[in-house]
Computed example of a mutant assay.
Amino acid sequence: MEKVLVSRCLLGHKVRYDGGAHGPFDLLQRWQAEGRIVPLCPEVAGGLPTPRPPAEIPGGQGGLVLDGTQPVLTNLGENVTAEFVAGAQIALQLVRQYGLRVAVLKARSPSCGNQQTYDGSFSATLVAGEGVTAALLRRAGVKVFNEHQLAEAAAELQQLEQLDG
């Protein structure tokens, strides 16, 4: 059975920067009951508290954070790059440990966003880009989806399981 890395906030865990959570999502609840889910909040795993100040990447490109050319900053100007990179590395360790090929991560997050992130101005301006964890996982060959792409994630899992037959 194919397992999936899932953002803890999408499972109802109160780990968002503001202490909140998301969901419930029927499909994720089913996957959890089936034992498919490997839960992770990269920001908390990387050492940040809950709640915590909101953070964004100037320019919104997690890959540039991984390359060492952009920081992750809070709205107070605190540099939290090390924690974001540490959390991404923990996600990659889980991918390797469990042989994960699919992740469902929180849309628009500076860690987990897979299509859009905020631009670093703390003005709710979205840009095409991905978070730090999403970028690292994609570089490692993991297919990264968000909570608005659950049907696509389920189809990918089904295809992988059919190929592994």
Rank of each mutant, 00 (worst) to 15 (best):
P54E: 00
E34Y: 01
V132G: 07
G99A: 13
E156Y: 02
A151M: 01
D18T: 05
L137H: 02
C41P: 10
T117W: 12
E43P: 13
L66Y: 01
C9H: 06
G77L: 03
L64R: 09
V144T: 04
P53Y: 01
L94V: 11
L137K: 03
R52D: 04
V102Q: 01
H22C: 15
P49I: 14
G46Q: 08
E152L: 05
T50G: 11
L94H: 12
V6I: 10
V80D: 00
R52F: 06
C9G: 09
Q89M: 10
L160P: 06
Q61N: 08
T117M: 13
P51R: 12
G68Y: 02
I37A: 01
R16P: 00
E78Y: 07
A124K: 11
F84S: 03
G63S: 12
P53V: 01
L160C: 09
N146R: 06
G47C: 14
E2I: 11
E130C: 13
V38Y: 03
P53C: 00
A33W: 07
V4Q: 01
P42V: 13
V142G: 00
M1T: 15
Q70P: 02
L64V: 03
L136Y: 05
G62Q: 09
Q89E: 15
Q159S: 12
R139I: 06
G77M: 04
G120C: 10
N79Y: 08
R36I: 13
G19T: 10
